[in-house]
Write a protein that binds this DNA or RNA. Sequence first.
DNA 1: ATGGCAGAAGCATTCTGA
Length: 281
Amino acid sequence: MLIATWNVNSIRTRLSQIIEWINNVNPDILCLQETKVTDDCFPFESFEKLGFSVEVYGQKSYNGVAIISKIKAENVKKGFYGCKDYGQNIEIFQDQKRLISADINGIKIINVYVPNGSSIESDKFEYKINWLNCLASFVEEQEKKGEIICLMGDFNVAPSNLDIHDPKKYEGGIMASELERNALNNVLKERLIDSFRIFEKNYGHWSWWDYRNNAYELNKGWRIDHIYISRGLSSKLKSSVIDSSPRANLRPSDHAPVMINLNLDDTNLDFFDDEDNFLEI
DNA sequence: ATGGCAGAAGCATTCTGA
């Protein structure tokens, strides 16, 4: 089963590119961020005529998330709920449509568009940290219920300096600060694994390139789009890749899709064989 | 160091993104 995430930076502007990508890659689940449309304007038919079901949680101009899936999503929930450890009222997050979750194939799919935060000094930065803390509580509750989780999306955080083309230049700044990394690690704890880092340990793999300064042509990128999976799913994980090819399109999104392949059929796939040390991360 | 680019709203220019 192929599961993908892609910040498309406007579903309407990117629609033909997304359809082309689906036809090439044939994902089973595609989580989108920054759709930038109200739900009544979402182009449902373009996906439904390809046999996908569509769940959306959008707003005008900003944010917006969607789950496109071959198997119909069950128990679809829009926004945070049940964040018991989070002290503040979750109502403050409801006006920004940044999270949608659903059950597909026995997996709790959680699709997030984490706030950017603007700059460390900004009020938006505080909002970002609070949002991540609320997400930590949300994931905690899901885990307590015994859910097997696949948490993916645009996190707007580079987990380590290996995930930034010039870590010295951006050290301590937005998407690279210790506060953000700690907040992200508090979401993951020991329960969720960065699927990409199971296979690739080295510097030099990006999911986002700034539109400015020829960043894509110069390959000056960041890895800020992630797919995190429950440890219990790790034995099913066959691959995790960033498909940078759509970033070379005319009028591209500034983000590339990221995807994993899960082998849900073969329950005997041994993840800890003699050659591999995948979980030593 | 600064501004560079892109999208939406809406029709000039501002806001936001990362």
